[in-house]
Simulated scan of single mutants.
Amino acid sequence: MGAEAEVMVQLQHTIPVLDVPCCSDLDVKSPESTILQFIPSIRSGSFADTGPRRFMEDEHIRIDDLSAHLGSLMKFPKPSAFYGIFDGHGGPEAAAHVRKNVLGLLFSDTNFPETSEVDDAFLEGVESSLRKGFLLADLALADDCNVSNSSGTTALTALVLGRLLMVANAGDCRAVLCRNGEAIDMSQDHRPNYPSERRRVEELGGFIDDGYLNGILSVTRALGDWDMKLPRGSASPLIAEPEFRQIVLTEEDEFLIIACDGIWDVLSSQQAVSLVRRGLRRHDDPEQCAKDLVMEALRLNTFDNLTVIVVCFTSPDHQELSPMRHRRLRSCSFSAEALYSLQSWLDNKGSH
């Protein structure tokens, strides 16, 4: 489903980009007047495949018009959209539970802030609500008798409110923004080889063995997995706390790719962006682009389930012309004798 932006929300303050090492180059470079004129036009597509695995443990959610989906009781800047990928492990139960309950956990149970204006206080409230939602989802998995203690899931969500894009991530799914053809990572993979994660794990009494947390899990943040977590209230090496990155969208920002680690195991962020960008120029179909990414990962012999969401921020008429339309005309020249012969032939044809 898709929805065009109806109105643009006037920012009271310039929305800051999170000060994180990987995103220090995300400063908005466009003039302020250009930023204020830009309205994201949201449309998306998704595709999922079991891949070489026997069972599908991925879940995802795709909502192009969040306000319409939640109803008139919630008031958001427009356009508003929400996306999430939940990559399960140890069985599908945890990912399925989070997918089913995520909207209530994030937007109802946490008293999500409501306003039509985006300012610093609103941003703080949004981040706080998303963080609480992730932690509530983690606790809910512990309380659900239908979810095994050994079942867990990574979680990555992307929220668009007006021109704000906020990504929350716990695990090794990844969100990548395309800005003028350049891949900008909007999340960090929480794997044991990530230095800050390794330090945190070891400070809390955990260990890394052959790239696995406590020799068991390939991620350092996840929801569920209560057989690996210490009792509630205790500091555990495996946590559900998400990391956040945010940015103000401008006309330079073309689309966002959200995908599980099965994609990133065999494709770099830039390779994925280039593939999707070529596809959008050819057919302008984000769902086909999501499928193309999955097919490419399978061709490169990925070994995991595969789920991809592609979110476009510009309307089709803003897409660049296909390279076929830029084909140059060839020029050629004739000698005077050849031109005379051609003219004589034309005159003779006209006399018949």
Rank of each mutant, 00 (worst) to 15 (best):
G162M: 06
L204R: 13
A168N: 13
G233R: 10
P192V: 03
D189V: 01
D209P: 00
R221K: 14
N149C: 01
G262V: 06
S234E: 15
R221T: 12
W264P: 11
E197G: 09
Q246W: 07
G206P: 04
P195M: 01
D261E: 03
T220N: 01
H190W: 07
I239K: 09
L223R: 11
R191H: 01
N180I: 09
G171L: 11
S187C: 00
V147T: 11
I247R: 15
M166E: 08
A170F: 13
R200M: 12
L159E: 04
D261F: 04
E254S: 07
I257H: 02
I239Y: 00
R179H: 13
N169D: 13
D227V: 00
I208R: 00
R163A: 11
S269D: 02
L204E: 11
M186Y: 03
W264D: 12
N169L: 09
S151E: 07
R200F: 08
S148N: 08
W226L: 06
E202I: 07
V248R: 15
L177C: 08
G171P: 12
T154S: 14
D225R: 01
R198Y: 00
A222I: 12
G171N: 11
G224S: 10
R174C: 12
A158Y: 10
P237F: 02
I258F: 14
E251K: 14
C178H: 12
L230S: 03
A170C: 12
W226G: 04
V176K: 13
V201C: 12
D189A: 03
E243N: 14
L238I: 05
G205H: 05
L165S: 15
G162V: 05
G211Q: 06
I216M: 13
I263R: 14
A170V: 10
L230P: 00
L164P: 03
S269K: 02
A158T: 08
L156N: 08
L238C: 10
A155H: 02
V219W: 03
G152W: 06
S268H: 07
E252K: 14
C173W: 06
N169C: 14
I258P: 13
D261W: 03
L217D: 05
L164F: 08
T220L: 00
R174N: 15
I257D: 02
L223E: 10
T157K: 10
A155Q: 01
T220M: 01
D189L: 02
E252S: 15
G211W: 11
I263C: 11
I184S: 07
Q270W: 04
K229P: 04
M228V: 02
L256W: 07
R191V: 09
E251Y: 09
G205W: 08
A158F: 09
D172Y: 14
S236H: 06
V219P: 09
